[in-house]
């Protein structure tokens, strides 16, 4: 793994490419654990209004990933890895495919990867 704040598995990248073709530009938002918790939310790019309290983490194949600033405090030492897993998408997140949903895996980063 590199020191990027956010990255994705090949399966997640494939799903992102397909969604870009099917629904247009998309984005990810990483909420704190709540109900479906650590699952990232995939929105159409203009659907969710990014505000003063959201932090841009990086892009995966051109798709932006944001995190709530409170969450960012907790997750400073974590690298987010977008992945897909079997099962329907829950909440308002766009599904990653037929019976597939996006998930986030956390890699605890070494101190020198931390961007302050």
């Amino acid at each position: 793994m590199t020191g990027e704040r956010v990255t994705a598995t090949p399966e997640a990248r494939e799903a992102i490419q397909r969604l870009k073709r099917e629904v247009g530009p998309i984005m990810f938002y990483q909420p704190g654990g709540c109900f479906d918790g650590s699952l990232p939310i995939c929105f159409k790019l203009v659907e969710f209004i990014i505000g003063e309290n959201d932090i841009f983490l990086g892009k995966v194949d051109g798709t932006p990933v944001y995190i709530d600033s409170r969450q960012y405090e907790e997750w400073k030492n974590t690298q987010l890895v977008l992945d897909v897993a079997p099962g329907e998408s829950v909440g308002f997140s766009i599904a990653a495919g037929d019976n597939l949903h996006f998930v986030t895996k956390s890699n605890f980063m070494k101190a020198d990867f931390v961007i302050r």
Partner: peptide, 18 residues
Amino acid sequence: SEQQLEKVMAYVDIGKQE
């Protein structure tokens, strides 16, 4: 759901890592 189970397991892993 399976998603909930996955999430619980992910947090147990996070707890250990922390």
